[in-house]
Simulated scan of single mutants.
Amino acid sequence: MVEVTSGGATDVETDFAAEADAIVGGAEAAAVVDRLASEARFFLTDVDGAQMVWRRFGSGPAVLLVHGGHGNWLHWVRNIEALAAHHTVWAPDMPGYGESGDAPGAELPVLVAALVAHYAQLPDTGEIDVVGFSFGGLTASHLASALPQVRRLALLGPGGHAGPRRQQRALVDWRQAADAEALAVAMRHNVEAFMISDPARIDALALLAYTDACRHARFRSKHISRAGGLADALDRFGGPVLVAYGENDVTAEPERVLERLVAKRAGREAAIVPGAGHWVQYEAHAAVNALLLDWLAR
């Protein structure tokens, strides 16, 4: 493990300027990301020659944030500071995402094993809480029984539930965009179709974070999220679990999933966040930050 004191400026991050140029308000959004990145302590772990990037914020009881598919640490851009006021927050890019190196394989057990090996190189690997979003929720459910000393688990819009989905609008292939402006249009369409329920809440920061995450994702997670496995992973963990969905999450029917995963299960709690879509911790960040802080303080 190597700590990098520069705050994490890498070749990947130099793309922010080009991405921001095509977004109305993009320069201001990039400044928000740059400021947040400057507040981090930046760590690199290395397993078999593959590096993984970790950002650490704040101090206090440790929390690991596991981003979603087509994601990176910016899935938590509106949550890190609230959590870091009370916790040591680890916000990595998983292998195959963001600034980290490629994953050693294409399946979930391989990814989980790699995460465990990288995590073991971090300083102060004592008790920790784990919070996961979307595909990262499914990943976090497996990590909860694979990492040492996981206290409690919180899942936001987790994949792997094996139930029906409610997506009505098809995503567009942003890779076919002819220029930066077309890319920005495609990304906004996909955010509105999949991530955020209320179009009025799609701001420049959401578009910049989503664009950067998608452009640097190499690990393909869709088939894993749709294959199930969440219920079994939670049973293996056996500890306290919070499962929350946005009311309008297109990746699930929240009431049905929560009935199956949470109802009448000791140590498990459910929440549905009104008016929010899949990227619930962004769209309804104030409500979700309060929910997480309460859960983590138990």
Results as ranks from 00 to 15, higher is better:
2 V>A: 13
3 E>V: 11
4 V>I: 15
4 V>G: 07
7 G>I: 10
9 A>G: 07
9 A>E: 12
21 D>S: 11
23 I>W: 05
23 I>D: 07
27 A>D: 13
28 E>D: 15
29 A>W: 00
31 A>F: 00
32 V>T: 12
33 V>M: 08
34 D>M: 10
36 L>E: 12
43 F>H: 11
48 D>Q: 13
48 D>K: 06
55 R>C: 06
61 P>W: 13
61 P>K: 13
63 V>C: 01
63 V>P: 00
65 L>E: 13
66 V>D: 11
72 N>D: 14
78 R>H: 12
80 I>Y: 04
80 I>A: 03
87 H>C: 01
90 W>C: 05
92 P>F: 06
95 P>F: 08
95 P>R: 03
104 P>Y: 13
110 V>K: 14
114 A>R: 06
118 H>T: 13
120 A>I: 11
122 L>V: 10
123 P>L: 10
124 D>N: 02
126 G>K: 00
129 D>I: 09
129 D>N: 13
131 V>L: 05
138 L>Y: 07
142 H>I: 14
142 H>M: 15
145 S>C: 14
145 S>P: 08
147 L>S: 10
147 L>N: 09
154 A>K: 01
159 G>R: 00
161 H>T: 14
165 R>F: 04
165 R>V: 09
168 Q>V: 12
168 Q>S: 12
171 L>P: 00
172 V>I: 10
175 R>G: 09
177 A>C: 01
189 H>D: 03
190 N>P: 02
197 S>M: 01
197 S>I: 00
198 D>P: 00
202 I>G: 01
203 D>K: 04
203 D>Y: 06
204 A>M: 04
204 A>W: 01
206 A>M: 08
207 L>Y: 07
212 D>G: 05
215 R>K: 11
216 H>E: 12
227 A>H: 11
231 A>P: 03
231 A>D: 15
231 A>N: 10
232 D>F: 13
232 D>C: 10
235 D>M: 06
236 R>V: 15
237 F>G: 05
238 G>I: 13
238 G>V: 13
241 V>H: 06
245 Y>W: 15
247 E>A: 11
247 E>K: 09
247 E>P: 09
249 D>P: 06
255 E>V: 06
258 L>M: 02
258 L>E: 05
264 K>C: 14
265 R>I: 11
269 E>C: 01
273 V>T: 12
282 Y>K: 03
283 E>I: 02
286 A>Y: 03
293 L>T: 13
295 W>R: 03
295 W>E: 02
297 A>M: 07
